[in-house]
Amino acid sequence: MQEENNSYKLIPGWGVDANPDDRPNYPMKKWTGDDHKRINWQRPALQQSSVEVLHSNERPSKSAVYGTTVPPTGLSGQIRRYAFRHSEDKYAHWLPLLLADRVNMVEGVIEDISSGHFPNYFKERGFTADWKYNRGAVIQKVVGAACVLLVWYAMSKTKKKKRFI
């Protein structure tokens, strides 16, 4: 299916950036010698904040700017603090963070309910869109789940009966 002719050369812009001298050929190192001074920059002003920010132990201090959204709290926060005692090289850093994310999800539901807001799972999972564009699959899932429930129910009934025979 190879192009027989050179019609691709008619594609708008074809070859405009083909000249190797006119592109950085990224990511070739832009060597200036300057970076061998290691810390060769004057740090920007440092952001001041009282929010708890966990920083990687592979750097001596926080970066000059950082986000201050959702600081660590609760059990998930404890797990995150533990994770940050290990370098980015270690599973002991990343696996606890993933665990903390799952714990955090449960904390989110508890927080929602205790503040009087019962999360609308259907809406949050985009069920309206699924129902509109993916109805077949939704029905399949519901029917599948119903079958599993029915079988489970039937089995638990027969087990009970057996016990009495």
């Binding site: 832009k30 000059a64 950082y66």
Partner: peptide, 26 residues
Amino acid sequence: IACGKCAFCKQELYGNCHESNPSATA
């Protein structure tokens, strides 16, 4: 998010700025 000044920004590696993420160096 790039500072435009650090060693990596000086190399135009603006996706690898060293002054914009405290939590991971990678």
